[in-house]
Simulated scan of single mutants.
Amino acid sequence: MSAPARIASFAALLVAIFAAAAVAGARLDPTVDDNGGAHEEGDLQMNGHGATTTRPQQPTTGADPRGAGAAVPGLAVAEGGYRLVPERTALEPGPSARYGFRIVDEGGETVDAFDVEHERRMHLIVVRRDFAGFQHLHPRQLDDGSWAVEADLSAAGVYRVFADFATADRSLTLATDLFVAGRFDPQPLPAVAETADAGDGYRVSLESGPARSGAATPVEFAVRRGGRELDSIEPYLGADGHLVALREHDQAFLHTHPEGEAGGPSPISFQVAYPTPGRYRLFLQFRHRGEVRTAAFTQEVRGSRASGATEPGAQEHSDGGH
């Protein structure tokens, strides 16, 4: 083939590649929509949207129901034919910043029918990429099927936003990044600790043994105030507590609820299936005297004995501490 012919063929190939990229990018770009009209989250039946299903509440472990080798929840903006589309990917800082989003199907149509899980149709977790500023929010659904909520974005930085929901009898966690303008000084992951302050004299202790990846492992929290363990914890979202575990480096998402009937005494016990060894940031939420409180821990998860996975920190030691 002559040199001019080779150049012409190469140019045609580049045109085809850029055309395909443009189509893919158009499918992923978020849309902006600011329609009025809102429904409170508790208005589940007469909201003009699709039928709402209340799913039986079952204890969850954070295990991925799609089977071994499947992607861990919270790492992707799209999965299973559904996609999280934010109105904006950057906001100005503020204590009550409006965040809007929608869930769309494969055809790009807004999904408006959601199942009730843990007393809500939509759970939104917002946390900065350095694990600061954790918030568990329950957005309201607007007339067009989209969702809106006010979040405390007073601190600048890069946030991760997790939409945790169920539709058509399928549970999903989709996630995206949110940029908040301003100077961002990321903080290191807090050290591993067995106690945490939940404010107003509440102290929470992580009292279970070492956690291992690859199978459900017990994670137990004792809640005390003034040195005395609580004899009654009020139900929160239909359970004695709520636990979000985020993996270091990528913030893979585990969302679990405790074992047993709601309304029992401390301790609060969970079964958590950590997907890999490493460090995780745990956010425990519980209700007492009408107020929801949060205690945060850093937990180190060891590798499964059966898998022979490398223990956290083993590589650093073998490299002489580097």
Rank of each mutant, 00 (worst) to 15 (best):
G214K: 05
D185P: 04
A19F: 07
P235I: 06
F165Q: 01
G290V: 07
V161Y: 01
T60S: 11
T276W: 08
L28Q: 11
P86N: 12
R66T: 10
Q187S: 14
D152R: 06
L84P: 01
D144H: 04
A273R: 10
R293Q: 09
R120M: 04
S213W: 00
G308M: 07
N35A: 15
V219L: 15
H39C: 07
F134M: 08
S208F: 03
S205K: 10
A211Y: 02
D177E: 15
M122I: 03
T110L: 08
S146V: 02
G81M: 06
P59V: 11
S154T: 15
V72K: 02
G74E: 00
A306I: 13
P65K: 00
P139K: 05
R247P: 02
L28Y: 07
G209F: 03
G133K: 08
R6E: 13
G201R: 06
D115F: 02
P95A: 15
V127F: 00
H255A: 00
Q57Y: 08
G321P: 04
M1K: 08
S208M: 03
T52Y: 00
G278E: 00
H317N: 09
E248A: 14
A22H: 04
D34E: 15
R27S: 13
N47I: 00
D43C: 09
A239E: 06
T54S: 12
P30L: 04
P210N: 13
V161N: 00
P95H: 14
Q187G: 11
S213D: 11
E41P: 07
A113Q: 08
G227K: 03
H322V: 13
P277A: 04
F10E: 11
E87W: 08
R302G: 14
Q187T: 14
T176E: 12
N35Q: 14
G290K: 06
G308T: 08
N47E: 04
L137N: 07
H49I: 01
A191K: 14
D197C: 11
H138C: 05
R247N: 03
F114T: 00
L13D: 11
T31G: 13
Y99E: 09
E41R: 09
A215W: 04
A5D: 11
S154D: 07
D43M: 10
A155P: 02
Y280L: 06
G48R: 01
A71R: 09
V127G: 00
V126Q: 01
R228L: 12
T167H: 09
R224Y: 05
V301Y: 01
F221W: 02
G48K: 01
F270D: 02
A175Q: 01
P186H: 05
S96I: 12
T89W: 08
